[in-house]
Amino acid sequence: MDAILLQLLNGLDKGGAYALIALGLTLVFGTLGVVNFAHGALFMLGAFCAVTFNKLLGLEKVVVDETQTTAWGTALEIRTPYIESWFGEFGSFLLNYSVPVSIIVAIPVMLVIGIVMERGLIKHFYKRPHADQILVTFGLAIVLQEIIKHYFGANPIPQAAPAAVAGSADIGAWLGLGDGLVYPWWRLVYFGFSAAVIAAVFAFLQFTTYGMVVRAGMRDSETVGLLGINIQKRFTVVFGIAAVVAGLAGVMYTPILPPDYHMGMDFLVLSFVVVVVGGMGSLPGAVLAGFLLGVLQSFASMNAVMTIFPGINQIIIYLVAVVILLTMPRGLLGREGVMED
């Protein structure tokens, strides 16, 4: 029972990240019809917004102490963060909460990156075949990865969760299942955060006029255009929003997975499977499939399952994708007519 509950939580948690990335991918595909292989790189760039913010906050005053020497004979440098010497306790608080606070920085940065990416490069490929779009966005992803590696190196850079949520929650006591059943606080925070972001995106599309026009454009952009609405401009903003969603998913994931330049690529392939299983162009499908595949992946890694089906943990997602596509060729919630022409 304990093991099942923990794996369910793991799955929801991982599913949250898959769902956020797949949501952005589907938004871009549904509006602009572009298969964006650089979307994983946006997740990675979001994570590096948190890293950069933390590095800026951690800029240190270096005082050279001539009385002490390093093991290699140079004078010892004593370092203290500027922010602590300037703001005292508030500075320490900012350093401690640098990951959640970096969301404020990441939103405008990712919006600008998304818009620049769409206007500067991807718009030139709208009328080109999907293969060209895949090649150019994949190339872009590699370029972005290499830029990050050049400045930050190839090793993962750890980001600490705020001390208040760095430990584990005693969920056993909450649910009356006895002591010893713990789950990391930050993973619970991440699950709540991903649910909130997904709700916010749906609310934006469902309950605002702007969102209504975007949805109409996703159905039939030509007709919306004939009504005198500059739908292309709105789609550009939607691309920016998709970048923000992926970026925020990356920012909040940093305490779980120390970010490195390659983390986007690791998530990208799985997120494409999520989009296909959910149904191309279906936003609820992307979210549903994200959580579903996350949970299935966790359960497949249980020892009891792996004893019966060795290696199932590594193929479960693709196996489910095959089964769903055989039985439901449009995916779980796919619409008729999408990518079928």
């Binding site: 794996q7 991982k14 010893g180 890694s301 249980m302």
Partner: peptide
Amino acid sequence: GAGDFSQYLTPVLNS
């Protein structure tokens, strides 16, 4: 390169 090892770590807790 599994990235997230949570699904492999939770069984350790009950082993």
